[in-house]
Design a binder for these strands. Structure first.
Length: 677
RNA sequence: GCGCUCGUAGCUCAGUUGGAUAGAGCAGCAGAUUUCUAAUCUGCGGGUCGCAGGUUCGAGUCCUGCCGAGCGUACCA
């Protein structure tokens, strides 16, 4: 229960100064003698929420219904008693009781304006307060394998992790990002083996990473070939014949008389046929893979010359781990260019890390981890492996293999110990795809048994990036898509769109140089925003057309909205900074002004919601709402041509705050804006 | 077999500890441009929220069962 409380307190108690928090505070006070105790009052006060429909006001309190039930009184009566006790006169119009006992709240315009003026004066933070009790967060995200190029699978972890890092830091927490790269695994065995047998010194000199990825691909192909030929094909053929006879048996069995049994039998046949079809597909794939290599003369020769390549690669890896001088030297030589390559991708993505402590960093600590867990009776031997058996799990958590090698479980445990010793965090967040949830459940359970009880471990899991066919995003030939080429494609498409639109103008706005800058920001932004705008836990379909669309909830639309607002200041030769200091005031007369103002007021509430459950899409939703309201305002409220000087200045202030809210919000998501596009 | 995630408009997706008449974009239809950037905006049509029960003042949201999809499930990470 205590750990759950720790969870609830997590990152969400951000500011007592936002409107929602202020309302809840006032309700909490008013509820105290109705509810009896402070805890119940706070719980009920949490039922004050933004209204979902403007006709119910700006906020609504839903607490009278549950409280009425608790007290055995009609909810409307309770609502009336509550309104009686509320001290909201400076904040709201008189509360309205509606329906079964909803209390609808409409903010006073002067209160909204006062808040916005304060936000305007706060250049960097737009009035968002820092948390009262900062916590220390370690964020673990991106974590690519360095010996192979980053691919589409790294987008979500990198982009979501970076956005959470930025937001947590912005609201005042201490944040430490640590890129747990894979720099010590089998993939290095592959390139070491590849270098020794197929390496090309001249090619390495020309382009080390290209040469190393060639070696990686070549060795991987050969390993997979022998695996397919020697293990997969026989196994699949065996399984196929088993499944064929089972399906035949089921089909021949007499149909049961009982309807329920009959249905079950039919289902079993259906399942057997589905299994059969799946096995046939797998077999066909494996056969095609083998055939492809045998049809390629150079590959066929390599394959024939290296029949035991799989074991040999593992031996090279083991030699590296054992301290073999030659392999260590090669590792030392290969690692820097690999790191430089991924750094280039991070530079383009505008992502950086405080630390990059990969698997190799923990190599020496691993034996001690196993000894320590065994000494405490947490780990024991089973089938020759060292295992932690956990309640509620059939399979144990393996921390050392039969052959003595360590696993990523071991490294993760060593990493936890290092991070706890070094940084004493309150929370460690792992931004890793959902398929690893069992691993993290076991890892966290083991870490707690190991003594790390008072730290919040969170697996920030996310869904898969899918292609058009609804299957994991791959190239036509089935290879994973390289991240660099993905970014190139998005930027190229963005460039075409930018040029097309700018050329269509009577007077093109942008130089060739500007077009390239805009395309880079729009293209990269599109990929990041599409990722962040989807619910973290669901899969989503990757589509360049959708993410680069100008309508809807996309980076391009948000960036365009920003550019449109900015252009007003250019067009009117208005110095926004000077205007802010001029004593000009916001006045809300038009409904569209008020709707925009209300949204601008709620920026910090949106951040609260994001960090309560680490869901960046709640910020994109908010920003899209701001942009939509700005569009409505822009249609119906002339700014530069306003009726009076006072109205002109008021509207310019709203524009200024809109622009800065969009820019800050996008920056917290790791997305850059442009002044013109 | 067991476990986790999911099923919302023709398509892609939102939906805040359970809140009032379930939203957005695309696609379809109808409009707005001598422009403050139309790369835009406005309006219309479109839903048995997989199915069936249950909990309650109130269920897309929680519980149970079923149907369907994906993922995981002892020595890869």
């Amino acid at each position: 229960m205590r750990s759950l409380c720790g969870l609830c307190a997590s990152a969400s108690d951000i500011t007592v100064m936002n409107t929602l928090a202020e309302l809840r505070q006032r309700f909490s006070t008013a509820l105290l003698d109705l509810a009896g105790d402070a805890a119940t009052a706070a719980e009920l006060a949490a039922l004050v929420l933004p209204s979902q429909d403007p006709k119910f006001g700006d906020y609504q309190a839903n607490c009278a219904m549950p409280l009425g039930k608790r007290l055995g009184k009609p909810p409307r009566e309770v609502a009336a008693a509550l309104v009686e006790r509320l001290d909201l006169a400076d904040l709201c119009e008189p509360p309205q009781i509606a329906g079964p006992g909803f209390i609808n709240l409409t903010l006073r315009d002067d209160w909204i304006v006062a808040r916005l003026q304060a936000a305007l004066a706060d250049v960097d933070r737009l009035g968002v307060q820092r948390v009262a009790a900062p916590r220390t967060f370690v964020l673990d995200y991106s974590s690519p394998n360095v010996a192979k190029p980053m691919h589409v699978g790294h987008i979500r972890s990198t982009v979501i992790g970076d956005a959470l890092y930025r937001m947590l830091r912005f609201v005042g927490h201490k944040t430490i990002s640590d890129n747990h790269i894979g720099d010590w695994g089998t993939q290095f065995g592959m390139i070491i083996y590849g270098w020794k047998h197929f390496g090309d010194e001249a090619a390495f000199a020309r382009g080390p990473v290209a040469e190393l990825s060639r070696l990686y691909r070549l060795v991987n192909t050969l390993v997979e070939y022998h695996e397919a030929k020697n293990e997969q094909l026989p196994a699949l053929r065996l399984r196929l014949s088993d499944q064929e006879s089972r399906a035949a048996q089921l089909e021949l069995a007499p149909t049961p008389a009982d309807p329920a049994d009959k249905k079950r039998a039919a289902k079993r046949i259906q399942e057997a046929l589905a299994d059969l079809a799946k096995t046939r597909d797998e077999l066909a794939d494996a056969e095609a893979k083998v055939a492809r290599i045998e049809a390629d003369e150079p590959l066929r020769k390599h394959a024939a010359a290296h029949p035991n390549i799989g074991a040999a690669v593992l031996a090279e890896t083991a030699a590296l781990h054992a301290g073999d001088a030659e392999n260590r030297a090669l590792w030392q030589r290969f690692l820097p260019p690999c790191l430089a390559e991924i750094d280039e991708t991070y530079r383009r993505l505008d992502v950086s890390f405080d630390h990059t402590l990969g698997e190799s960093f923990y190599e020496e600590a691993l034996p001690q981890v196993v000894r320590d867990l065994a000494a405490r009776g947490l780990a024991r031997e089973s089938h020759g492996a060292q295992c932690v058996f956990l309640e509620g799990h059939d399979a144990p958590f393996l921390i050392q293999k039969q052959d003595g090698a360590f696993l990523y479980a071991t490294t993760d445990l060593a990493t936890i110990r290092y991070r706890m010793d070094q940084w004493r965090p309150d929370a460690i967040l792992y931004v890793v795809d959902h398929r690893q949830s069992l691993h993290f459940t076991q890892l966290f359970a083991t870490a707690r048994l190991w003594g790390y009880e008072h730290v919040e471990f969170q697996h920030i899991s996310f869904g898969t990036v899918l292609g058009d066919d609804g299957k994991p995003f791959k190239t036509r030939s089935g290879a994973s898509v390289g991240l660099a080429s993905l970014l190139d494609e998005a930027v190229d498409r963005a460039h075409a769109i930018v040029c097309q639109n700018d050329d269509a103008r009577p007077e093109p706005l942008l130089s060739a140089e500007e077009r390239r800058t805009v395309a880079e920001r729009v293209g990269i932004g599109a990929i990041k925003y599409a990722d962040l705008a989807h619910n973290r836990t669901s899969d989503y379909k990757f589509s360049y057309d959708k993410m680069l669309a100008m309508q809807g909830n996309t980076a391009a639309y948000m960036q365009y909205s920003y550019a449109r607002v900015s252009s007003i200041f250019d067009k009117g030769s208005v110095d926004a900074a000077a205007l802010r200091l001029s004593g000009a005031e916001i006045t809300l007369t038009h409904p569209a002004e008020r709707a925009l103002a209300l949204a601008l007021l709620q920026f910090s509430e949106a951040l609260d919601r994001v960090l309560a459950d680490y869901r960046p899409n709640l910020l994109t939703d908010y920003l899209y709402d701001v942009a939509s309201r700005y569009a409505a305002f822009f249609e119906s409220c002339p700014v530069l041509r306003a009726d009076t000087q006072q109205q002109r200045e008021s509207r310019l202030l709203l524009c200024d705050l809109t622009a800065r809210t969009l820019r800050l919000g996008l920056n917290l998501l790791g997305i850059a804006v442009v002044d013109r596009m």
